[in-house]
Design a protein around this nucleic acid. Structure first.
Lengths: 128, 128
DNA sequence: GCGGAACTACGAACGTTTTCGTTGACAATA
DNA sequence: TATTGTCAACGAAAACGTTCGTAGTTCCGC
């Protein structure tokens, strides 16, 4: 039984993944340009990172074209769930309630967002 | 205007902080023993870590006694909020709603937990 | 006072992540 | 065919986090 688990992406790797989620399958050049605004580096740095990410299994690589096309292997939601579960264990002793309370009480959530969350709650409680 | 921000604690540093939050101000030895079960290392490793954490400002240090007494500089909730806000930016594009949805759907919260969360929502919306 | 226990301080080693320069392959073009 | 531009591959270096051994200090009991 293989223990095939994707490792948790580092901060920089996550920035690349976000580009791939937003743009879909992309070449190194495309990612590099998309990253230029927020994370200015040299082309080969992005290349190296993405090669390593391919080795780790974070992205898949299509080599049919001369410029290889990379794609995130896990959907955005899967990785989000992974990171969130991780933080839940590491910093919240597994208590989802206190995590949600924290996120709500830090004034990040707007009124509309609160409404949406309430809707999700309704669905979870009543729906099933 | 000084830009005094506490750096985000690493995984290992967070383990130490968790001990300090649980025990309150503690010596290196006390932390080391508390950590022995989950994170077995040598005494001086914990010492070094805590010295570095003091430099970073993650903990404060009282040197009155021979065995220095360390204390977390930020309350548990503050650090949790910091880490959460960080993850929100890095992985959720700032959307608290999708973060809460993720945590609710993946770690299916119990009925009581849902009730508690709903109470928080009520307080946030109606209370003020 | 002496020896051992409990500390802090320090520095070296190691692994991982991030960065970049260089090289060689390939393609398009003049 | 020679030149130029784009690309992957690779290696090395820098930065960071983690680990541990060693040295030196202080304290206590004998």
């Amino acid at each position: 039984m293989p223990k095939r688990e994707t490792p948790r992406p580092t901060d920089t790797e996550l920035q690349i993944l976000r580009v791939l989620w937003r743009r879909g399958p992309s070449t190194v050049r495309e990612v590099h340009e998309a990253l230029a605004a927020t994370h200015p580096t040299v082309y080969t740095t992005v290349l190296k990172l993405m090669q390593i990410m391919a080795e780790k299994g974070l992205v898949s690589r299509n080599e049919e074209q001369r410029a290889h096309v990379y794609e995130a292997r896990l959907a955005r939601e899967e990785t989000q769930a992974q990171l969130l579960g991780d933080l839940l264990d590491r910093a919240f002793e597994g208590s989802a309630t206190s995590l949600v309370m924290q996120v709500l009480s830090s004034k990040r959530a707007s009124a509309e967002e609160l409404e949406q969350i309430r809707a999700v709650l309704d669905e979870l409680e009543g729906g099933e």
